[in-house]
Simulated scan of single mutants.
Amino acid sequence: MMGMKIDCPCCGGEIDARHTESMSQTMRRMYFVCGDCGYRTPAGFEILFSLSASARPRDGVTLEVRPSPTLRGTVNARTTMTRVNAL
């Protein structure tokens, strides 16, 4: 598994995904460990929908396709979106 890192909610360091287990074809449970403070926690990861149709769809898996503009720049666990409130 490639290393997935997110911010530790306790100390602000990086916590690493050490193990995953399948919950369904579109959902996994990931177990994270913080090397700085020792915090350990499970987290859920779910595929919600598709941005484009698959060239090799899997039998029994149906994901809604919601086309969107091409993503630009780096997208990672620290990427945030600013919400603009209309007045």
Rank of each mutant, 00 (worst) to 15 (best):
G13T: 02
L63A: 02
P42G: 01
E14C: 04
S22C: 15
M23I: 11
T41D: 06
P67H: 00
T62V: 10
S54M: 06
R40P: 10
G35V: 08
T70K: 15
L51G: 09
M30Q: 09
F49H: 11
P69Y: 09
D59V: 04
D16Q: 12
S68Q: 12
L48M: 14
Y39M: 08
S54I: 05
H19F: 09
T70C: 13
S24H: 05
M23T: 10
G35C: 04
S54G: 06
M27T: 14
R40I: 07
L48Q: 11
R29H: 09
R18G: 14
F45Y: 15
S24W: 02
R56Q: 10
C34A: 06
I47Y: 04
P57A: 02
P9A: 00
Q25C: 10
D59E: 11
L63P: 01
L63V: 01
G12S: 10
L48T: 12
S24K: 11
D36R: 12
D59P: 06
D16H: 11
R29Y: 11
A17T: 12
I15G: 01
P69Q: 04
F32D: 04
G60S: 00
M27K: 15
G13L: 00
R18N: 12
R66F: 01
I15M: 13
C37W: 08
P42S: 08
V65L: 03
E46D: 14
C37M: 03
A55M: 12
T41M: 09
P67A: 02
M30F: 11
G60D: 02
S68T: 15
L48C: 12
S54E: 04
V61F: 00
A53I: 06
E21R: 15
E14K: 10
T26D: 07
T26K: 00
G44T: 15
S50F: 04
E64M: 02
P69H: 05
D36W: 05
L63D: 00
R56G: 06
D59G: 03
S68K: 08
F32E: 03
E64P: 08
E14W: 03
C11N: 07
R58L: 03
F45G: 14
R56N: 15
D36P: 08
E64L: 06
C10F: 14
P69V: 04
M27S: 12
C34D: 01
D7T: 14
C34V: 00
R29Q: 13
R28F: 12
G38N: 02
C37E: 07
R58A: 07
D7M: 08
